[in-house]
Amino acid sequence: MTTLSLTTLSAGSRTLFPGVLACVVVAVASTFLSQHYGAPVMLFALILGMAMNFLSGDGPCKPGIEFTARQVLRWGVALLGLRITIGQVAELGWHPVLLVVVSMVLTIGLSMVVAKLLGFNTLFGLLSGGATAICGASAALALAAALPAHPQKERATLFTVVGVSVLSTTAMIVYPMIARALGLSEHGAGIFLGATIHDVAQVVGAGYGMSKDIGDIATVVKLMRVAMLLPVILFAVMCTRALGKGTSGPRPPLLPGFAIGFAVLVALNSTGWLPEVVTTAGSDFSRWALVSAIAAIGMKTQVRELAAVGLKPVLFMIGETVFLAVLALVLLRWAS
């Protein structure tokens, strides 16, 4: 029995290996380009993945690419929990927590309403609104993993990742100038940057580009937003059930396994029992898993499908980003 299981496992690994290796190679190349040219690594992974789209056709790489886009993605999201502790959130006090929660709820809620008014699928509003309000590409991938299969889901996910990556890079340059022009204090500037820029890397770049104190505050506020992944994933699954999506197949669990893993790792990391080498290794693996997964999604996407999206979704995502920034500034003024 054991010999049979090992043989089956070995055969499965051989089937997956070519595709997984292709995704990892793209992830390594994307990381190299990002480190040398300063653009978001997710954007490079998407572009290179789309350039290697031919690998996702019928052939030896297809199973591994499918596995990376689905299962490796879930591992990466779960391991994001090693970046956060409950203590980090508590140290900031209730004002930033309230600002993050209100911004997230209003941004996602308005995105879903506007998406429906514009004729989009309501869940696209949830996907793009969650990416804008929480943590950019990582949130888009996490929410996509929690939503049921849909013919347009991968194209919507890819478009959302491209959009938030470009907008996050733009915000990294523009938002520090806004903070200075408005005369925000270091505390206020840190909260503003951490509460509005989409991706963690861009928050770090913008914050520490202004000062160390601003960078520290911005990073913790950003991680607080990452912690909002769990309730939003739960909300996404409940929305899916309420809207009757995906009823043709088995209903998704109320809380997916990777979301439970995320919560458990946040709790474990908060105890201080985990050695730093474990949290660092887990966080690094999470990053590699997410970059590899987005490369796989890029490989599975037809460029002509992405080009057919049109201008309306682009303006929609820009509107979400502007709304979040203005809302955060208003709430900052109100809290002060």
Rank of each mutant, 00 (worst) to 15 (best):
F54C: 09
A307T: 10
T160D: 00
T196K: 00
V309M: 14
C23T: 11
F44G: 03
F17H: 08
E66K: 12
L16F: 14
F192A: 01
D216I: 01
M210W: 00
V20Q: 04
S292F: 13
A181L: 06
A171E: 03
A90Q: 11
R83P: 10
I191V: 07
P253F: 01
R241N: 08
E66Q: 09
V232A: 07
V77N: 06
T271P: 07
G207F: 00
K222R: 05
V330S: 13
A295G: 04
F258W: 09
C61W: 12
M224W: 06
G207H: 04
W273M: 15
A308I: 13
I108Y: 06
V105W: 09
G190H: 00
L73F: 12
W94N: 14
G319Q: 04
G209M: 02
V100S: 03
M317L: 10
L106N: 04
S286T: 12
D216T: 06
V303P: 14
F285H: 09
A293V: 09
P151N: 10
L274E: 01
K212R: 15
S30M: 05
T280K: 08
G57M: 14
L141D: 07
G272M: 10
P250Y: 14
G205V: 03
I294Q: 07
A131L: 03
G81C: 04
A45M: 02
Q88I: 02
V166T: 02
L98I: 08
F120N: 06
Q71L: 13
L55E: 07
L254K: 12
L126C: 06
Q302A: 15
